[in-house]
Design a binder for these strands. Structure first.
Length: 845
RNA sequence: GGGCGAUUAGCUCAGUUGGUUAGAGCAUCUGCCUUACAAGCAGAGGGUCGGGAGUUCGAGUCUCUCAUCGCCCACCA
């Protein structure tokens, strides 16, 4: 028997271990159809946050649902080394231990990295366990493990041989704190207060000057030209002349280039090919020298002359002072502009000329765009609008900088010997080869996740059976970093989309709609929520209170009401189980079913149908409200109440069937408590996990009878309402006049006693409807509510409604064009309203 | 500049292909310790679905337009 109180801690204890022991999470039943999801691998940098809880709960729901539906499900667990983020954490730990990570040997540092991984991966696994995730741990992978490392090498070498990976000097986004190059996706643009510095560039052999406006005066030392638009009447005569670069007093040419926008600023732009991507292009067109003036750590280098060693922002201040002294500064115009910042370290990005490895994106992206035109083989986003985000990215994509000046894993498989370059899976033979010091962007390995986890590049059985994955679940913020890259790598290396569907959810926010962040201190640890309300409540809350693709505001009060719902389920189950103690078999015939039985079976089957439909569309919020109202409003508030007066074996069978079905439909959402209750059912399997999802059965749809009960429930509400508004108390005498077959329901539910009490100074009040008349004999008090007023109000409403409906039904267009069932419904409604009106008019006489 | 989303009850949000009187949770008011549940039961109040126009027999839902808020992408010398 169930405990008297629902206690989530007791319920959730040991269940996960039980499932693991029974190997329920393990895939591989070849007699069934395969269904596969790979988890978005969390970083091994720390704890899981609410976003992970949401994301993984969604996946667990899909996995458990599919399992109950008879699929061979595989949910691949795994974790990601996460490049910069992990390096920073490990370095910090080493520094705290008094060690200098950069003075260690790479191998030694990697040992620490693996220790770190062991520690954090077990933390993460225990959090997954708390969340109840049905992950197949026999297939767990890590982006640093051997198989995945091989896949990374294979991909690099093949792309290189195909000419899709190259090494070159380009302007890249440099993070002066992490001391590494970044991809464009890792740069966040933020509005910053800055200034336009208007500087005089004196024209050679002239007292005249060109007014150059720049936001980055400190890059002036790298200027190798000044550009004007070749069509600019103001300046085009100067093209070919020289100007004197301030401070350095160096001659640089005035060039004509379309890049200079006549409308913008002064129309004159300084060209710094080593520190600006546009200038780099201009430099290429005009064969300009590229002069790097900033060191990797953000300080000025020797090309900055006396400013060498100063931080780039310090240099700016000093330089401006000096320019002012020399009367070369015209004005400082305050502006706000967008400046790129590192996603990880937050510092301002330095556009920087550097030799890096790149993936040539155009051909890969075009393949995705082509594939997305094919309904049969495209990645289907849910909701569909997110496809645009991917497609747009593919359209405007540019080459992906994949080398990172970090430690860690996935060294670039390239070796150098003087001018020779060797790219291969293994170190080349012969002496003098030195491997590239850099590692690959963490997303380079993540991009292979859907197939590398299944054994690619080997053509393994797993790969054949579970690839493409059925669905990938992730937040919309990850589309550019990950979804896009998995898609082009998947298509390129397997010829197939990585997953058939991509279910997108939003971001989780706090109650006020702010992002969770360390600086705001508004973080909520999902483990704390589980402690307080249970994993089931957390999962149900997150997944049924959110809709696809939309952001989510986390409100702890709502967690509480979710807990209440589970408590309600618990208590309803207790009621059923208390009454099923001697229950042996589920046994009912159509003939034995009462009206109420037929009603709840009809409701149940309609619920099953809708729930399945919405589960398949990932509309879990719809499933949630469907189940909530079926369980609470229909099953608890009505059917259980009806059953109390009619507890025969048929009723018990129906209670058993309905409860079991409820548990099975709820199980994907709240696996722990449903397992607990299921195991207490008189007829069950060893675990709800190996039972099967309810199937819609047309045989149990009884529309006529269901309608009768709906009508009765409606009458019960009306009568109760009548009692409240007329202050009718329990002490009154109640006489019911109704068709014999409904008599017991009304009497039991309304708790009508056959005994007639003696009431002094009594008066009679009548409730009247087409199907029932109830007479209340109550004590006569002066302050009684005027019934006539209420009736008049209702009468007026009815008259308006009847008129509206009559008008509608006399509209030929409506009769001809609207579907028949809608019209019939209106006719029926009209009839009912007219009947009710008659009764009211009679009362009012 | 391009794209996307939001605007529905006091609050937070649903509302799938247009179709009964627009829903839920929380909050509010009234009455109940009725033997599964007071973390509950019963009843009630509360919205001209951001504004305007259009299509339609019928619009929260489709089209156009305006407004406000938010996000993404691009550019910004």
């Amino acid at each position: 028997m169930l405990d008297k109180k629902y206690n989530h801690k007791i319920v959730e204890e040991n269940k996960y271990d039980f499932w693991l022991d029974k190997k329920y999470f393990e895939s591989g039943d070849l007699s069934k159809e395969a269904f596969c999801i790979v988890i978005p691998p969390p970083n091994i940098t720390g704890k899981l946050h609410l976003g992970h809880a949401w994301d993984t709960a969604l996946q667990d729901i899909i996995i458990r649902y599919k399992k109950l539906c008879g699929y061979d499900v595989l949910w691949v667990p795994g974790m990601d080394h996460a490049g910069i983020a992990t390096q920073a954490k490990i370095d910090k730990k080493l520094k705290d231990m008094g060690k200098n990570p950069r003075q260690m040997k790479r191998e030694e540092w990697l040992k620490h990295a693996w220790d770190w991984k062991e520690e954090y991966s077990s933390n993460i696994r225990s959090q997954w366990a708390k969340l109840g995730l049905a992950l197949d741990y026999t297939k767990e992978r890590f982006t640093m493990d051997e198989g995945l490392s091989n896949a990374v090498k294979e991909v690099f070498v093949r792309l290189y041989n195909e000419g899709l990976i190259y090494r070159g000097e380009r302007i890249i986004n440099w993070d002066p704190e992490a001391l590494t190059a970044l991809s464009n996706e890792e740069v966040i643009y933020k509005e910053v207060k800055g200034a336009f510095y208007h500087i005089k560039y004196m024209i050679e052999d002239s007292s005249d000057y060109l007014e150059v406006a720049t936001t980055r005066p400190e890059t002036l030392f790298g200027d190798t030209a000044v550009a004007v638009n070749p069509n600019d009447e103001r300046y085009k005569h100067l093209i070919g002349k020289n100007v004197i670069l301030p401070i350095l007093d160096k001659k640089i040419p005035v060039i004509g280039d379309e890049h200079a926008d006549m409308e913008f600023g002064t129309g004159i732009v300084k060209i710094t090919p080593a520190h600006d991507p546009n200038d780099f292009e201009v430099g290429n067109r005009h064969n300009l020298e590229r002069i790097v003036v900033i060191n990797p750590n953000g300080t000025m280098n020797k090309n900055a002359g006396k400013y060498e060693g100063l931080d780039r922002f310090e240099c700016r201040k000093e330089l401006i002072k000096d320019l002012e002294v020399k009367n070369l500064l015209i004005e400082v115009e305050d502006i706000t502009h967008n400046v790129g910042h590192s996603e990880r370290t937050g510092v301002m990005i330095e556009p920087y000329l550097s030799k890096q490895w790149f993936v040539k994106m155009r051909p890969l992206a075009d393949r995705v765009l082509e594939n997305q035109k094919d309904k049969e083989s495209k990645v289907n986003f849910v909701p569909a609008r997110f496809e645009k985000i991917m497609n747009h990215w593919m359209e405007i994509t540019y080459d992906w900088c994949i080398s990172r000046q970090l430690w860690g894993v996935h060294r670039i498989p390239a070796w150098y010997r003087e001018d020779e370059v060797y790219v291969g899976r293994e170190e080349p033979k012969g002496d003098g080869w030195v491997q590239d010091e850099d590692v690959l962007d963490t997303w380079f390995s993540s991009a292979l996740w859907p197939f590398s986890t299944l054994g690619w590049p080997e053509n393994t059985k797993l790969l054949q059976r579970y690839y493409p994955n059925n669905v990938l679940v992730t937040g919309y913020d990850i589309i550019p970093f990950w979804v896009n890259r998995m898609t082009f790598q998947g298509l390129h290396f397997t010829g197939k989309r990585p997953f058939k569907e991509c279910l997108i959810h939003g971001l989780i926010r706090d109650k006020e709609g702010r992002k969770f962040s360390k600086s705001l201190g508004n973080g909520i640890d999902p483990m704390d929520m589980i402690e307080l309300y249970g994993s089931d409540a957390l999962r149900y809350y997150l997944t049924t209170n959110s809709s696809r693709g939309m952001d989510f505001r986390f409100d702890e009060d709502k967690m509480k009401s979710t807990w209440n719902f589970i408590n309600k389920l618990w208590n309803a189950s207790r009621f059923v189980l208390l009454n099923l103690e001697d229950f042996k078999e589920e046994n009912f015939t159509l003939e034995n079913l009462s009206l109420e039985d037929k009603w709840i079976l009809t409701k149940l089957n309609k619920t099953i149908k809708n729930v399945r439909k919405n589960m398949d569309k990932y509309m879990f919020n719809e499933v949630g409200s469907e189940l909530y109202s079926f369980i609470w409003d229909n099953f608890c508030d009505s059917y259980i109440e009806f059953s109390k007066f009619n507890l025969n074996n048929t009723t018990k069978s129906v209670l058993h069937l309905v409860l079991k079905s409820i548990l099975q439909m709820l199980h994907p959402f709240i696996p722990f408590v449903t397992e607990e209750i299921y195991q207490k059912l008189p007829i069950n399997k060893e675990s709800i996990m190996i039972s099967s999802y309810p199937i819609y059965n047309k045989k149990y749809i009884f529309d006529e009878e269901a309608k009768e009960i709906e009508c009765i429930i409606n009458e019960i509400t009306n009568i109760r309402n009548f009692k409240v508004s007329n202050k009718i108390t329990k002490d009154s005498n109640t006489i019911i006049e109704v068709d014999k077959k409904y008599e017991s329901i009304f009497k039991n539910i309304l708790k009508v006693s056959d005994e007639i009490k003696k009431i002094n100074n009594s008066k009679k009040l009548e409730y009247n409807s087409p199907i029932i008349k109830v007479t209340f004999e109550i004590e006569n008090k002066e302050d009684d509510v005027n019934i006539k007023e209420k009736l008049l109000e209702e009468k007026n409403k009815l008259i308006v409604s009847i008129e509206k409906r009559k008008k509608l039904l006399s509209n030929e267009n409506y009769i001809n064009k609207a579907p028949k069932n809608i019209v019939d419904l209106d006719r029926e409604k009209l009839k009912e309203e007219e009947e009710r009106l008659k009764i009211i008019e009679k009362e009012l006489k």
